[in-house]
Every structure is written in C-alpha cells, then in structure tokens.
Amino acid sequence: MSEKFKVLYYVNQFFGQVGGEDKAGMAPLFCPEKVGPAAGFEGLLKGAGEVVGTVICGDNYFNENKERSLEFILNVIKEQAPQVVVAGPAFNAGRYGMACAELAKAVVDELKIPVVTGMYVENPGVDICKEKAIVIRTSDSAGGMRKALPTMAAIALKLGKGIELGSPEEEGYIPRGMRKTLFVEKRGSQRAVEMLIARLKGEPFQTEMPMPVFDQVNPAPAIKELGKATIALCTSGGIVPKGNPDGIQSASAQKWGKYDVSTREALSAPDFYTTHGGYDPVYANEIPDRVAPLDILKEFEKEGLIGKVYQWFYTTTGTGTAVSKAKEFGTQIGAELKAAEVDGVILTST
C-alpha cells in the first residue's frame, strides 16, 4: 500500500497539547508528528491514508495575525503536498472555529486542496467556510470528539480517494448551500400530492425549496433619557467616503464599512457619495444626507436634544445581499455598538 494519500492536520494550542489560554498567542509551527486528535486519525483512515504532520497555532495569534499565519501554514502545506487537509474539530470555540474556517477557505481557494473540519452549527466559522470546505456537524463541546473524528475521517477518506460525497444527512456534514440536481424515485406530482396530504393531516412534511427564514426579535426597551443618549447612524444605502476606500460592492455586498464622523457636520458631497447599485444615485450624490441624515443628528447634538452622535458611521449596500450576509453584518455591527455602549440606532434604507 504505497499509494496512501497524505493528510495534514491543523489544531490550536490546546488540542496541540502546548497549553491553554496562556499559550493562545503562540505562532504557528509545523510538527512532523501526529499530535492530539491527529494521533488517532490515521487509524480511522483504514490504511488508505497517512497523517504527515500537524500544524499547531495559537487561536489569538491566528486571529490577530491572519495573513502572516496563513502565509506560514500555506507554505507548510505546499511543502508537504497533502491530498487532504483536516482542521479541528472546533466545536463551539469561536476563535478556533474562525481559524479553521479562514484556513479552510484559503486552502481550498488558493491551493485547491479539499479541507474537512468540524464545528457546532452555531460556531461563527461555519458561515465563513461551509461553501468551500466540508464542515461536519459536531456537538458544542470537546466531549463530542469521539463521535466527530470517525465522521471526519470517513469524509477525508472519500476526498482522498476522489469519491463523491453523499448527502449532508448521510455523511453528517452541514449543508454547503449547494442545490444539487438529482433523480428521485417518485415524480414531482406524486411528491406534491403526498406533501399536500401530509399538510392536510397535520403531519410533518419537508419542502424541497426552503424560503429564507425571517424570525422576529423582541423590541429592545426605549431610550429613557434622549438628552444623554449616544445615537449611532447606519445605512444600507451605500454612502461611502470618496474613492470608496474599503471597496464596498454596489450590490451583493460582501462587507460593510465604518467611518469616523466625529469631526463632520454632515455627509456632504463630494467627500461622500453612494456606491449602491440599487437606485438612481443622482439625488444621493448631490446631498448624501438625503440617505443618511448626519446633518440633522449633528444639529440635534448641538441643541442637546440627543447626547451624542456616535463617532463611527456604519454603511453597506442592501440590494441583492444574501440574507445570511446581512445577518452576519448585523451581528458584527451590533457587537461593536454594544461594546461602545451606544444607546440607540437609526438605520436608513433606500
């Protein structure tokens, strides 16, 4: 069996048995041994693959030095030339999950090597990499390791041998968001009638085309003292500084931007304009405050009607942006506003 495929394993400082939180700042290193979960992994590959080494990196180091970390790790991968890269599982650990996810994305995009990882479904890393890597569904704590590894190994085995993966349910991974066209036993009309009868009987049924879910959030309590409140201004109308320094897309936005407006009286032209591709930009470009009314908020701040306009102005474009992206933006922006103790938010949309 000289034709074994090669697997490279990635773990954080904890699973790499270097140390706990105190070692989270360690830079990545390559270790030709099989460390932590990598140790038992080879056995699960049933003699078809071998683990050629382990990359260990501190979670904080990775997240704070993403580019440097990726450069190092990608170089190791190039040298070792594995057929499959395995990372984690990260369970519900946010920083570890983000590291696995960013690594997975880079490896798939740049090196075209398949990656298997494992995460709890609510790990923020899932959304980052599930389209690129295979993310198996794990429990939320390391107690699920014994269950996770065989699932990951089974997938690694298929990837290593170039065998097509089955459905997410069969293989235990989180759906990648791919609509796969396939044949089923029953014709469509039959499936429709069965679905109808199940609905009529109040039995469970599964739609073949799930609609995006809109859940409702309980309203946050009102601001008590407006005169002391810090108000943040956000827009999905794509108002950006001249030159669009962060390259916010005109549609299907992949990112948001924040700009310091503490010294500004208004979002005036030509310092600001709209990059939004979803409406006629003429009016917004004449007076950007028509989309995001910083001018009025600043006046109210002066008058003492409100305590303060928050230093940062947040912006993105709303058109064609996937629900999952909008959600991601909201979570990131919300976390920042919460940390900054902002009391209320005005969000304008075009």
Binding site: D215, Q216, V217, N218, P219, A220, P221, A222, I223, C234, S236, T316, A326, K327, F329, G330, T331, I333, G334, A335, L337, K338, V342, D343, G344, V345, I346, L347, T348, S349, T350
Partner: peptide, 18 residues
C-alpha cells in the same frame, strides 16, 4: 441587519420607504 442589532438589546429604528 435590523434584527441582529436589536438582539444586542439596543433599540433600532428603521427608516425605509418600502
């Protein structure tokens, strides 16, 4: 976006035409 910000317990007002 609105919902996610409000989830942090910050009141948010949406100014929109549609």
């Amino acid at each position: 976006m609105v919902k996610e910000i409000e989830r942090f317990g910050i009141p948010i007002v949406h100014m929109a035409t549609i």
